[in-house]
Design a protein around this nucleic acid. Structure first.
Lengths: 294, 294
DNA sequence: AGTCTGCTATTCAAGATTGAATGGCTTGGC
DNA sequence: GCCAAGCCATTCAATCTTGAATAGCAGACT
């Protein structure tokens, strides 16, 4: 049973790690939800405790000393272990009450999720829901989110995923704009239209062309990552854009640009960390999401 | 730079680990050099933070829940990383002032070390020396000690070792006792004597017999791990015992029991952790020890 | 040059944490 | 069956930590 505890204060180590990661005491304080003087003092205390110089104070900003760089490496592995702790703990959590963070796309967040979330809240008022709206896939492993709605199956074995359905997406345009294009009825005719895209990647272009269209970069007059902006622009007749069937067909201002075109098919996956899938709270939210999205 | 800090208090995790390792809040408090209420509260706070039950409070003592057992595993790996941190930090330590812990045997501690330590203290008053007197080889990796004096070369690659010398040990007995035995001049005659040994292991016996003696368990009337006790008993004429040449020859009450017998040969190694060998303070102590022991 | 923003260091009162002492409990030994 | 030892929970005063506010400073931008 003889066990020697580490001599230094672990929280100070965490303050140091945050500072090293974020680049300044102030930023670290924001990340740790504490104040800049506190972080500064904790790091100073750690330096005194370990009798090493971690940062070179150079007026504006800090710069890690070589020693500090050595140490931050090991503290990072403390942090990784800490993340595993919080992951397992969340999975073992006994109470239904508590936070759940859901990561999803803008479209789902705005058009699909609200009624589902309302239902969850009504049924389980103790569950606090945070929605992380992002197009990038959040890191479930790092617990930026607990549950993610994704359009692909995750590859990591530590993630648990359930396929909800196969969704369909079509090209939509406003009635006015399609009129202006002469109500195109073939892919060729539609290829003269303006399109609204995500980015300038070629992959999107190739996707369109694989469906029979023949588009080039010139077709994309407006680019935005923001799907809501895309959709508003589409409703205003600025161009053609891809939208899920559910949202697109429900919008009276627009119609399918080329009904004969076969739809984009994409799966919908609900994903969580395997550790979390044993938590009652996560399980409840996961199942209600699955039910609502189906 | 987006970095998500772990939500829970790392020091509380450490308190929990200590409790799990030591078996009780009180013992953990002793290990952490804090008080029992503090540890109890920190563990309770961690339970609240993680919303998990870590211990089953069952009157006397605590018992880990399965959840707690899961978590302690991960926190242990935090602790391992923490140990690496303190190790590297000690290696990088800038100041000569500070503590050094030396692990050694009783004989060295009492007969050889004092003048050397006095010399170190006189030369470097800022260095605080702690001596861990133990026959068991202390765990340098876990930093129970910084420097160890050992009679074998360590096998772990992370340890740094320097061979100081080859020592010699002989069999010693008091003048009176040897007289009483009839001043034995052969191994056979000496084999009738009482011997004072460390333990009832056969290895010691085999060592003696390999040198020409023919001893059995019956020869060992007194057993003790305590070398000083062995030596005092020897001086009082209770039996024969093995002692280093330096100590044995310097003691007027005893003489070599069988001068013709070739001595035990054993190396003397000074060992430290590789990380520490770059610390100025450790280096200074290490070198002065090596010089004094040679 | 001048302004603006964002950073660190310091101060001091408010707040949180700590630990000695105590009470109540359980276990193990006589 | 009783006693002693060891443990956990609670209390409350002393201590330590925290954070809002402030001052001072270094770069970026106009």
């Amino acid at each position: 049973m003889a066990w020697h505890p580490t001599g230094f204060d672990w929280n100070r180590a965490r303050a140091f790690l945050a500072t090293a990661q974020e680049g300044s005491f102030s930023a670290a304080a924001r990340a740790l939800k504490t104040s800049q003087p506190t972080v500064g003092r904790q790091v100073a205390a750690l330096e005194a405790e370990l009798d090493v110089v971690l940062f070179e104070r150079v007026g504006h900003g800090l710069v890690l000393t070589p020693t500090g760089a050595d140490l931050v490496e090991h503290i990072r592995s403390m942090d990784e272990a800490a993340h595993r702790v919080s992951l397992v703990a969340a999975g073992q959590s006994v109470s239904l009450d508590g936070p759940v963070c859901i990561s999803t796309s803008q479209i789902e967040a705005v058009y699909t999720l609200p009624p589902i979330l309302a239902g969850i809240r009504a049924k389980h008022p103790g569950i606090e829901i945070e929605v992380l709206v992002t197009n990038q896939t959040s890191d479930l492993g790092r617990r930026e989110a607990d549950i993610a709605i994704r359009s692909f199956r995750p590859t990591q074995p530590e993630l648990f995923a359930r396929k909800i359905k196969d969704g369909a997406a079509h090209l939509y345009g406003s009635h006015a704009y399609l009129e202006q294009l002469g109500n195109p009825s073939t892919a060729e005719e539609l290829s003269r239209a303006n399109f609204i895209g995500f980015n300038r990647d070629d992959t999107l272009l190739q996707g369109f062309n694989a469906m029979g269209l023949s588009l080039s970069q010139d077709n994309f007059g407006v680019i935005s990552e923001n799907q809501l902006l895309q959709w508003e622009l589409t409703k205003l007749g600025v161009g053609i854009c891809v939208m899920t069937e559910e949202v697109g067909d429900a919008e009276p201002l627009v119609r399918r640009a080329l009904p004969s075109l076969s739809p984009f098919r994409f799966p919908l996956w609900l994903t969580t960390h395997r550790e979390l899938s044993t938590s009652r709270r996560m399980r409840v939210v996961f199942d209600l999401l699955a039910e609502g999205l189906a």
